[in-house]
Design a protein around this nucleic acid. Sequence first.
DNA 1: CTGTTAGCGCATTCAC
DNA 2: GTGAATGCGCTAACAG
Lengths: 348, 348
Amino acid sequence: MSKGRVTVVDIARAAGVSKSTVSLVLQSSPLVNEATRAKVTAVIRDLGYVYNRGAANLRQSASSRIIGIVVNDLTNSFFAELAVGMDMVMQSAGYVQFLSNSAESVDRQREVIASMREHGISGLILSPARGTEAADLKPLVASGIPVLAVVRNVVGAKVSTLFSDNYAGAMDAVGHLIGLGHRRIAFLGGMANTTVFAERTAGWRDALNKAGIPASDDLVIASTASRAGGVAAVERALQLPEPPTAALCFNDAAAFGVCDGLRAKGKEPGRDFGVVGFDDVIEAETAVPALTTVSVDPQGMGRRAAQMLLKQINAGRAEPEAIVNSVRLVVRESCGAGGNGGARRMLA
Amino acid sequence: MSKGRVTVVDIARAAGVSKSTVSLVLQSSPLVNEATRAKVTAVIRDLGYVYNRGAANLRQSASSRIIGIVVNDLTNSFFAELAVGMDMVMQSAGYVQFLSNSAESVDRQREVIASMREHGISGLILSPARGTEAADLKPLVASGIPVLAVVRNVVGAKVSTLFSDNYAGAMDAVGHLIGLGHRRIAFLGGMANTTVFAERTAGWRDALNKAGIPASDDLVIASTASRAGGVAAVERALQLPEPPTAALCFNDAAAFGVCDGLRAKGKEPGRDFGVVGFDDVIEAETAVPALTTVSVDPQGMGRRAAQMLLKQINAGRAEPEAIVNSVRLVVRESCGAGGNGGARRMLA
DNA sequence: CTGTTAGCGCATTCAC
DNA sequence: GTGAATGCGCTAACAG
């Protein structure tokens, strides 16, 4: 039963036709007799034949229908959600994906991309590891296969891009806080040397400046983009000579940490201190956020990224395009039961 | 530059040798002159040649060095961590993986597995969608490619397995609570119709019975395995005629929800109510758990799964093996700063 | 040590 | 409608 793979020849012989007839049946060509088609499909099922895409792809220089996805940190729910979104449209489009985790290592990233390339991917979506350079992608784009960078930028690389509008989102959020009367607004959490961090702090800064409020660097407190990082950041913020009365948090994890830290100091988030967070993982943990958030919807972004790449693949040789994924400020006035314990009656 | 793929023939011509010499160089065979080897490798680099594994694999009936991984819910951090663990060892072993999300749909799962098979995977790791039957995997195992089921069981399927010792973990956890003097101990959260749920509740039940405490079905309150589910479950539990004084929570998300729900009722988790949770995602969100937990370490489990599968692949035609991944009870007496706000001074 | 020959499984002409 | 050739990129034999 498992003595070597069963091929078209086998099923041709068993069905008493020639291999090309079988081939036609496989691609459901209209120019084959209905009776023979039935016979062939029956034999295919009986012998447990499986189509060999590798061989097919070798022959015709068609698309392998494999695409590569490399993300910097699949452990982060944001990127997991992103990947799931991509997976959805890839599956529906009849593609399979190599999906790998670079763990922020450019070396692993390079290796994994090389490996994918040897396997003939017809496109690549990359959420680049920190420190990725244009040169790393040079041979890939030179070979003509479409590459899409998401979430983070690769400066100088001639690839398509899909980024969130971090700048506008931060502007909106800070504007909201200012509208509520806050004047000292901190930026808490996140790793400083990322483009996302830079964009979000830029929006924070410009929104303050626009309102005539000085944007003091003391109020930008970077840390890890985690719950622990949020706790640490807010603790530092509250120790400032002139502590802030509100904060824009780098992401949702940091925002939760900030709430934790506030409660630990006897402050009620929302009532005693305004909190707005970028919500990179909205829809994921539906029960939690009673916070006002700048929502990114990673699954939607993933779907959009996949669609972009497939379009490029189908279009053949298209120019790289840059798209900005819009975000929206979600203001939650009240918070239902089952919410995040201490985060009700939000001032922000 | 990108006029068709550059092949062995191209580099053979450019290097002034024959293709088989190039082939030998590619597989770093010892029987090739050092000078010609240098020449060939130089040309390879200059022309930007990429090895075509598809063609190679077609010729020699060797392993494709592609393995398939299908997970029921990549949105769940547990499975994301699991996948990352697998990714690590696959990368180190020179494999690439198709990684896909079935989203608990047996249909998607079947399609995706079929697609992977057409691409010639040399092994499959499956965290089965709910409702997966042995028949779904029948053709795959019949074709002789190693299959490993993780986390959940597929009854009747002749595949290798790697499960956590949910039963023993639940026993340990409940024993711990009993040792602290609790008599009415609930089981909160989790979807009822899963094997994991069945195993964990069985351990809960048997530990109670062993201690001579009746295990009332009222105390098993299923819900979703999420934070919201935990909130709902503990609310129901506290409305019982004889409410519990402690609980074993299905997973960490549910445990957090239980703490939320307790605080909403003015009860301090750990002080007023004993909480132990299965910690499916330990190491992931390092800041949070001030809870006593039954730890599973999904990344480690993923690494182990990958190693198992690779061993099977290398061993050729090995019998399926069943391995149990041990879990450990982690008792946290105190909880440092930056912990989960309300979950300190745990009674459990 | 290196070149020659012959397929791996499939799809695409062409004849029939 | 169907069957016989040909070649995709590569490796395995065997010659030279």
